[in-house]
Simulated assay, not measured.
Amino acid sequence: MSRLLIVHHTTSPTLRELFEEVRRGAAADGIEGVDVITRPALAASAVDVFEADAIILGTPANIGYMSGALKHFFDTIYYPCLEETRRLPYALYVHGNDDTTGAVRAVESIATGLGWERVRPPATVTGPPGKDDLESCWELGATVAATISA
C-alpha cells in the first residue's frame, strides 16, 4: 500500500475546511491502495517523510511567509531527507487573508532544494474560501493520491 503524508498547520476554521477537502479528495472513490496519514507540522518527522510515497503540505501565509510550524518541519527534516527523498511527489495548499505569494515561493524553494517533484500547481486561497477554492483543494488531494495509487 502506498502512503500519502499530509503535513499541515491548521490554525483556523478556514484552514480546517481546506485540510478536510484535501483529505476527502485523497480518499476519493476510485483511488485504491493509498493510506492517508496526517501529521501536524510540529509533530511530523523525517521518519514520516521516509515512509511516504508522496506528501501534501498545508500552511497559512503569515506575514508573507509560510507558518513557523511548517518552517520548523522543514528545518527538522531537511538534511536527514536531502538524499533519501529526491523525486518525492508533493503538492501544496496555502491560505492567506491578502496574499499567498511569499508562502508559496518559500515552500517551493525548499521543496526544490530537497529535489521533490511538484505534482500540480498549489491551491492558493485568499479570504473566505469559495466553491472553486474548495474544489481545488479536493482536486489537489485526489491528484496526489491518484499519482501513487496502486
Rank of each mutant, 00 (worst) to 15 (best):
S2K: 13
R3M: 07
R3Y: 00
L4Y: 00
L5Q: 01
I6S: 02
H9T: 10
T10C: 09
T11E: 13
S12Y: 09
P13K: 14
E17I: 02
E17D: 10
F19N: 13
F19H: 15
F19Y: 15
V22E: 09
V22H: 09
R23F: 09
R24Y: 04
R24N: 12
R24S: 12
A26P: 07
A26H: 11
A27M: 11
A28G: 05
A28C: 06
G30Q: 11
G30W: 14
G30R: 15
G30F: 14
I31P: 02
I31V: 14
G33N: 01
G33D: 02
D35G: 07
V36Q: 13
I37C: 10
I37M: 11
R39T: 08
R39K: 15
A41R: 06
L42K: 10
L42C: 00
A43Q: 13
A44E: 15
A44C: 13
S45H: 12
A46L: 03
V47A: 14
E51K: 08
E51N: 10
D53S: 13
D53M: 05
I55D: 02
I56R: 00
G58H: 14
G58C: 12
T59Y: 06
A61N: 09
I63R: 14
G64M: 12
S67Q: 05
G68I: 01
G68D: 06
K71I: 01
K71P: 04
H72N: 04
H72C: 00
F73E: 09
F73K: 11
T76Y: 12
T76M: 10
Y78M: 06
Y79F: 14
P80H: 08
P80G: 02
P80K: 08
C81Q: 09
C81M: 07
L82F: 15
E84A: 14
E84V: 04
T85K: 14
T85I: 08
R86P: 00
R86N: 10
R86L: 09
Y93K: 07
Y93I: 12
H95R: 09
D98M: 13
D99G: 01
G102N: 12
A103I: 00
V104L: 06
R105N: 10
A106T: 12
V107F: 11
V107E: 08
V107Q: 12
S109P: 00
I110K: 06
I110W: 05
I110G: 12
A111F: 04
A111R: 03
A111P: 01
L114C: 01
G115C: 07
G115N: 13
W116Q: 03
E117V: 15
E117N: 07
E117C: 05
R118Y: 00
V119Q: 02
V119H: 01
R120D: 06
P121S: 14
A123N: 01
V125K: 06
V125D: 06
G127R: 09
P129G: 01
P129D: 00
G130R: 14
K131Q: 11
K131W: 03
K131S: 11
D133E: 10
E135V: 08
S136W: 07
S136Y: 03
C137K: 04
C137L: 07
E139A: 15
G141A: 15
A142E: 13
T143G: 15
T147G: 03
I148P: 02
I148H: 00
I148M: 11
I148R: 05
